[in-house]
Computed example of a mutant assay.
Amino acid sequence: MSGLTVVVPCFNEGVQTETAHRELTGALGGIEPLEILFVDDGSTDDTLDRIRGLAERDPRVRYVSFTRNFGLEAAQAAGFAYAGQPWCAQIDADLQAPPEEIPNLLEKAAEGYDVVFGIRRDRKDPPLRRFGASAQQWTARRLLAIDIPPGASTFRVVRTEVARTLVGLRLGSPYFIAMVPMVGARYAVVETGHRPRAGGGSKFRLTRLAGHSFELFFGYSWRPLNAVYLVAALGFALALLTALFGYAGTGGATTHAATAALLSGLALASTALVGRYLYRLLLDMQRPRPYYIKEANVNLHPEDTLNNGLPTPPPPAAHPPTAPPSNSSSVPPVVAS
C-alpha cells in the first residue's frame, strides 16, 4: 500500500510542533502507513526536546536535527532524502496551510501528477508579505520568463522519488518551485484554504524574501545579463555621441558631467550584476553539502554527518608521568662495527 510522509520543517517552533502533530494525525488518521518527519533546522529553543517527546509517544514520528540553521531549502531536501514512504506532503509547522487540505492534494495527484501545489485562497498574510510574494512571482513569470506555477507555495504533495531527483541536482541556487517545470515533472495546482499563523509571530522578513528573489531571478533566468549587454551597447552609443558633440563644440560642461556620471553608474551596476552571475557559477561548481545532521531517529547517510557515520572517539586522557625503566632491564644499544 502506498503511504505518506509529512515533512515538517521547524525552526524555533517550540510548542507549535505538538500542535502540528495533533492536527496532522487528526486530519490524516485514515492514511496508512503514515509517517510524520520533523526536520529541526538548528533551533535554539526547546523544539528538539519536544520533537523527541513526540517520537517517544508516537512511533509514526521521525526526526532529523541539523548542526546549525541551514535554511528552508536544506530542511526540505533532508525531509525528502529521509522520507520513508512513496509520497510526501510538505507543510509548515505554523499550520497556515490546513492539514485537512492534504487529502485534496493527494486526490489531484492520483490523476497522474508528480507534484501538486496548494494555492492559497484568501491569504491571511500581512499586506506587505502578500504584495512582496505577488511582485516576486509577477517579475519571475512576466519579465524574466521563468516557468513557475503561479501562486505555488511550500504547501505541496510530491512523489518522493521525483523530489529526491530534484534535490539531487545540487544546484547552487536551489528553488524547488522553479526546478519542477525545469525537469519536466508533471504538476498541477489546487486551491486550498489559508488561515492565520497558529502559534507565535510570523517569521517573515523582507530581507529573506529579497534573498529568495535573488536566487530565483539570477539562478533561473539569463535575461538580466542580456539586459546588461543592451545597456552596455546603449551606453557606448551615448558616450560616442557625447564625444562627437564635444569635438563639434556643442554641449556644455554640465551636459558632459551628467553623461559621465550616468555612464559610471551604469558601469557599476553592470559590474555588480555580472559579479552576481559569476557567484552563481561558483556555487554550482563548489556544490557544497546543503546540511549536516547532528541527531536523528532514522538511519543516517554517513556523508550527512560530521563524523562520516563513525562513533565519536573520546579525547585522550592525561596520565601521571611514570619513571623511566632502569638500565638493567633495558635493551642494550646496537653499536655499528
Rank of each mutant, 00 (worst) to 15 (best):
A78D: 05
D45K: 11
D92C: 12
A83R: 03
T67N: 09
L72Y: 12
Q96V: 09
I91V: 09
Q85E: 15
I36W: 02
N69M: 13
D40M: 10
T17G: 10
A77L: 03
G84D: 09
L28R: 07
L37G: 06
P59H: 03
D45F: 12
H21W: 14
A77P: 02
T67M: 10
D58I: 01
F66Q: 05
I51N: 05
A55D: 07
R50L: 13
G26C: 11
S43A: 10
D40K: 11
L95Y: 00
R57G: 04
A81E: 14
N69F: 14
C88K: 01
G29F: 13
R62E: 05
G42M: 02
Q90W: 12
I36C: 04
I36M: 03
G53D: 13
A93P: 01
P86K: 07
A20W: 00
V39C: 07
E35A: 12
A27H: 07
D46M: 03
L95R: 06
G30V: 05
G79E: 00
G53F: 08
R62M: 02
T47C: 07
T17N: 08
A20P: 07
E73M: 12
W87F: 13
P86E: 15
A97L: 02
F66D: 06
R57K: 14
N69V: 11
I31F: 03
A93M: 03
R50E: 01
P33L: 03
G53T: 11
A75Q: 00
F66V: 09
G42F: 00
F70I: 00
E23L: 11
D45V: 06
L24P: 03
F80R: 12
V64A: 14
A20R: 02
P59F: 01
T44D: 14
D94N: 11
G30E: 15
E56P: 05
D40H: 07
L48Y: 03
Y82I: 04
P86Y: 10
R62V: 02
E23N: 08
Q76L: 15
A83H: 04
A83Y: 02
R22S: 13
Q85H: 13
R68Y: 10
C88E: 08
A55I: 07
I91P: 01
D94R: 03
Q76Y: 15
A97M: 05
Q96F: 04
V61W: 06
E73N: 12
Y82A: 01
W87H: 11
A78R: 14
E35T: 13
E73W: 04
T47A: 05
P33H: 06
F80H: 15
D94Q: 08
E35F: 10
T47E: 06
R60Q: 15
V61A: 05
L48I: 04
L95G: 07
R50P: 04
N69Q: 12
G30Y: 10
L48K: 10
I51L: 04
D46K: 04
A27M: 08
T25R: 14
